[in-house]
Write a protein that binds this DNA or RNA. Structure first.
Lengths: 345, 345
DNA sequence: GCTGCCGACTAATGCGCTTTAGCCTGCGGG
DNA sequence: CCCGCAGGCTAAAGCGCATTAGTCGGCAGC
């Protein structure tokens, strides 16, 4: 016994009820001049009463844009284990998008080529007005593509050098350098001299920055052997790297992992090897999460306010969509939360 | 030096190039009769060459639907810690949506009222053709709402009783009952008699089903004291519940946690109390993830193929959108992966 | 030889909204 | 007294596509 579904009211319905033309309704509802205040108010009330909402399709068609921004996440399926980062980021993003009545079109892709294809398709289909670009990488093809397509975008995490070269691309810059400095500072203060960095995907820009900064900091402080090894962020490769490191001739006394998942995996390897944490090995996780709090010992971790990060990114994008010039802003530097996994050596 | 962005080709461009009318182009591209095969082929080639894609806005406006499905995730921000479930689900969903050229409009909401508001808005704005509904709950207001709005939907996880009462709502039913039975069976076989269930949000339908099944199974096997306590899925409440249970007069010998995060938190509490796992306490996690593999001891967990689950849900929805009648299908029963955290007692 | 019909197209309409161009009415200035 | 002008509104066009209603030529049937 299917009820006939409710019909969606259109501007024509409002016009009829308010006894004016459709154009008057449009003017009234969009705050354009051309109608008296009395009429405007009346139209508003009728619209409200009818529960009218503009059809995004019609709006888009008449040149107003799709009222939607896109976000594609290109990570191989196996590495999206317990990535709390993205859901938190998105939750922040949503908060401000909702305020601006913008929808979020979300897609997951296998790799960056699929991601670019998605951008092209969205553009050709006129689905989005702007984009949030995550995981910037060295030699990133996306800014040039977006420039070609004329799509405004916010790059989350910062490109390497050539910002500003592109039309409508803002950048939300995460201070990886400062963060790495604080980690190395912490470990050095505890007496560590052999620090190793189990990094993430080598093609990501922030991975490179973190690696570079580790070396710089280590040199500055006269620490030898500060090296990085790259992984795919998975627990498997995190564990694997840890095994190799601990079996080496001169195992590190401290390991910095580029995400929480690998840090936990590394901790498990240490336990399995009988290496005491933090007695013989200190562990730091880049990005805090419930995992870091729940392990035994709990993990010292780099904490950042990811939802806030997302909000900031969304703000940059809405500004861009409103016609503001592209900017480049730095997010707040993450804080190191000291827990049980780091100690004197 | 901003290049002028590329212009998007329209059907008019194709028509001009191919030397036919716009209608002919439409017929040709949509596989409608009314054009010769030769013309059809020529038009196809021109379209291809121009990189033409239909404007979703225009399509939507002419009654074809928005080529988009919606998904809103209503969970309080604090509980979306390391929820790997959703990203995995979505990755599966995307896979099949992409094949059908459907976009996914994603939103996060604070609670179910905000979720319903989002549905209403999407409907009024004609943004979506259908919805994926997650976290069904007892007395769920959403099916009635969607029915009223005439939006096809797939409920992921199954409603309680009244399926079939609604117009275009399919159900992908997760076999919580069978899963719980396999867990209880496993623990019983190991000799456990005092099993406790640290459940999730009490308002969710699957929480209730799991609780009910635990009682049924326990009774059937003559086990006393099989109780459930509810939480908000957070590590904090998982830990808290574990503390209470372990301090009770007759602590359980086995605890089943409704997600991985709480299981890990519970494990940490046991460690902190000096309760050996699995010696004195066995632990089972509902939903496997990297966490379960990485802890020490590793956790026996209920494994399900979440991306496949997502794919299945998306298939149900595309069928619905294509006009098929609503159905109710059961997802494959999850498998219990036995690890170190469960043993004889 | 005319009618009827079918295949291959084209013209025209509508979807819901924005926007531009007009159309009145009343008013002040010349 | 007429003109110009501004305010308040309506009519109409256009966005890109699908669809319905023609149009036109050719071919079979009577």
């Amino acid at each position: 016994m299917r009820r006939t579904p409710a019909r969606r009211p259109t501007m024509k319905d409002i016009a009829r009820r308010a006894g004016v033309s459709e154009s008057a309704v449009s003017f009234a509802l969009n705050g354009r001049p051309g109608v008296s205040d009395a009429t405007r108010e009346r139209v508003r009330q009728v619209a409200e009463q009818l529960g009218w909402q503009p059809s995004t399709a019609a709006r888009a068609l008449s040149g107003e844009g799709a009222a939607t921004v896109g976000l594609v996440l290109a990570r191989p399926a196996r590495t999206l284990g317990a990535e709390s980062f993205f859901l938190q980021l998105v939750s922040g993003v949503q908060e401000v998008l909702a305020d601006h009545r913008l929808g979020l079109l979300f897609q997951m892709a296998e790799d960056i080529d699929a991601e670019c294809a998605a951008y092209r398709r969205w553009w050709a289909e006129r689905r989005v007005d702007g984009l949030l670009v995550v995981d910037p990488r060295a030699d990133d093809p996306r800014p040039a593509l977006l420039d070609e397509l004329g799509l405004p975008a916010v790059v989350i995490g910062a490109l390497d050098g050539d910002d500003g070269a592109y039309g409508a691309i803002s950048t939300l810059w995460a201070d990886d350098t400062g963060a790495m400095a604080s980690i190395v500072g912490h470990l050095h203060a505890l007496g560590h001299r052999r620090i190793t960095h189990v990094a993430g995907l080598p093609e990501l820009a922030h991975t490179r920055r973190r690696m570079a900064c580790l070396r710089t900091e280590a040199e500055r402080r006269g620490l030898p052997d500060a090296t990085s090894v790259t992984t795919d962020y998975s627990d498997a490769q995190g564990a694997e790297a840890t095994r190799r490191l601990l079996s080496g001739p001169q195992p590190p006394t401290a390991i910095v992992y580029d995400n929480d998942v690998m840090a936990v995996a590394g901790l498990a390897v240490a336990a399995e090897r009988g290496v005491s944490v933090p007695g013989e090995l200190s562990i730091v996780a880049w990005d805090d999460s419930v995992l870091c709090r729940s392990t035994h010992p709990s993990l010292t971790a780099l904490t950042r306010d990811t939802p806030a990060f997302g909000r900031q990114a969304a703000h940059l994008l809405t500004a861009l969509l409103a016609g503001a010039p592209p900017t480049r802003v730095q997010a707040s530097t993450p804080r190191l939360t000291t827990r049980e996994s780091t100690s004197w050596t």
